[in-house]
């Protein structure tokens, strides 16, 4: 198990296992960018990419760079470590982030939400993406997580 920080769920999958369709997402992640596939016909985003658009059944997509910001759609605070290796990670926030620049449903990401006060996190909170570049990863994986956008 990799070193553990409170609130950070340690990556259990350290390879992307990408195929041609998903590789652009992971390439962008290595560059700290959030890339997202968008239907060329109707503009619907679908993350992760599926073979057909669920709105218009088109196959063709284009990769769009999203701002990497969004809001918390829902979440849970994991208190009970389901594995001894997670004892130092809990409490840990995980949830669904609705991405700015997308249509919402169909383009949400399920992620670990870090650097947050687990007792103060609320639905609707504004968050931004942050990538952890896994040093030991042969395929150079970058794990996307989100953190609250600090008040300026």
């Amino acid at each position: 198990m990799r070193p553990t920080t409170k609130g950070v769920f340690p990556a259990v999958l350290t390879e992307t296992f990408a195929d041609e369709a998903t590789q652009p997402f992971w390439d962008a992640a290595l560059d700290n960018r959030l890339g997202a596939p968008k239907c060329t016909k109707c503009g619907t985003f679908r993350i992760p990419l599926t073979p057909f658009c669920f709105n218009c059944q088109t196959r063709e997509i284009e990769w769009i760079q999203l701002p990497g910001t969004g809001s918390v759609y829902s979440f849970t605070i994991v208190r009970h470590p389901l594995s001894p290796g997670l004892q130092l990670a809990v409490p840990c926030a995980s949830g669904i982030v609705e991405l700015d620049g997308t249509q919402g449903s169909g383009a949400r990401m399920i992620v670990n939400i870090i650097e947050c006060d687990v007792d103060a996190l609320r639905i609707g909170d504004k968050v931004e993406i942050v990538f952890e570049h896994l040093a030991e990863s042969e395929s150079k994986m970058s794990v996307p997580r989100f953190r609250p956008i600090r008040q300026k």
Partner: peptide, 12 residues
Amino acid sequence: PNAAFTANSGLL
């Protein structure tokens, strides 16, 4: 390939 989009979320 899609497993990599959810596996590290912490939702177990």
